[in-house]
Design a protein around this nucleic acid. Sequence first.
RNA 1: GGAGACGUGGCCGAGUGGUCGAAGGCGGUUGACUCGAAAUCAACUGAGCGGCUUGCCGCUCCUAGAGUUCGAAUCUCUACGUCUCCGCCA
Length: 426
Amino acid sequence: MLDIKYILANKAEYADVLKNRHHDFNLDVLVGLDERRRKIIGETEDLKAKRNEGSRKIGSAKNNPGLDVNALKAEIKAMGDKIKSLDAELAEVETELHTHLMTLPNKLSETTPIGNDENDNPVVRKWGKPKKFDFEPKPHWDIAEALGIMDFEKGVMLAQSRFTVLKGLGARMERALVNFMLDMHTKKHGYLEVEPPFMVRSAILEGTGQLPKFAEDLYKLQNDDLWLIPTAEVPLTNLNRETILEEKDLPLYYTAYTPCFRREAGSAGRDVRGLMRQHQFDKVEMVKICTPETSYDELEKLTNNAGEVLEALDLPYRVVNLCSGDIGFGSCKTYDLEVWLPSQNKYREISSCSNCEDFQARRMNLRYRPADGGKIRFAHTLNGSGIAVGRTLIAIIENYQNEDGSITIPKALVPYMDGLERINIR
RNA sequence: GGAGACGUGGCCGAGUGGUCGAAGGCGGUUGACUCGAAAUCAACUGAGCGGCUUGCCGCUCCUAGAGUUCGAAUCUCUACGUCUCCGCCA
């Protein structure tokens, strides 16, 4: 959520942001609502001041019983009725204003490029070289099914399409990757490991921006105000909601392994085969809470932390800077990490690292007290995949495939696989 | 799930209808004392919103929501949470 004061004071600038994000909205609606709001506040506060004064008078009249306060009581009672109706009107206006503000996207960083779609995302850097195969590299679903480590039909049988069963060394490698990533972030990068709830209530999802706008992408429980988390970003970022942190305690680094649940509404027909786009997938997530001064440095570090996972696994990848037409609702700047997939002959998203500045902090009232004694300010929040586990499994299977259908285990992962160096056809 | 108790500021804790944003304490900041520290003493120490003459004035907030009243931290109802006992259970 943005500050209404910011929007009104920078209307033209923010109107451009909306245009570049392809978000159609007339900001004059907000101008009118804010004017109404302030007018009502003026009237109601005036009346309340008078009421308080009158009530005090009646209170002090206790000491002098001769005074008749009945007329005054009636007068104040009438005032009270007027206040009640004004307050109801105010609540209506504020709800409407709030509804608009909650559905308006974040502003953009100056370093976020203007563009239409993913084709306009500039490549920031590349790491590693795609391996040349002297045979036709297969897609991961062929390799994994032949090895008996993934069962797509069983996933459909138990749930529906876009669910998969991992078996044997497939399930084992998934677990190994989780441990490998968590170890790196906790031991090397200084993140605090967290195991959050996998279900959260509506207000929590409003805090990070998934609600109220994107309910159709989420799984909701039938009998409770609880939703399955689409990413650990949601519980981790909300961990300090409605509190005032001390600057000396910042930045905070959190990491968590969680399953993620997404309905993938609107993705019909895309990545229908394999493990690429699932309704349930594992992810190790990183979240940072820091001051405005440091958030863009922290974004660079966060992105590097994600990149290091791929480098340790020796998987070629590139970093792209998402343009205004492709960037997410709550983010000012996002780097996507894209891993090389030989079977598709292209780079595919495996991590997304974003600086949300104070957009989420404002929604969840997450603030900090500056060390110099200045005014309390909203913190900045960042999140990034560190990284998507299922897609890492895909990348390993495809990049480390051998002509005989076996898979070599990346060196860094061998200790996590009890020394196993290769998964062979049985 | 059943019965009971309770939810007050960063923390502890007083307050059962009238200047209560809330005593007292702890913590914190600043100053005095000190070579320095500790101890001691003194002062200060919540947030949000609105107005204008930018320093002040006003409004709101004692878990949340609704109600009673001229007036609610205080009374009533509901929700949520915490604790204790019982039942059940991984």
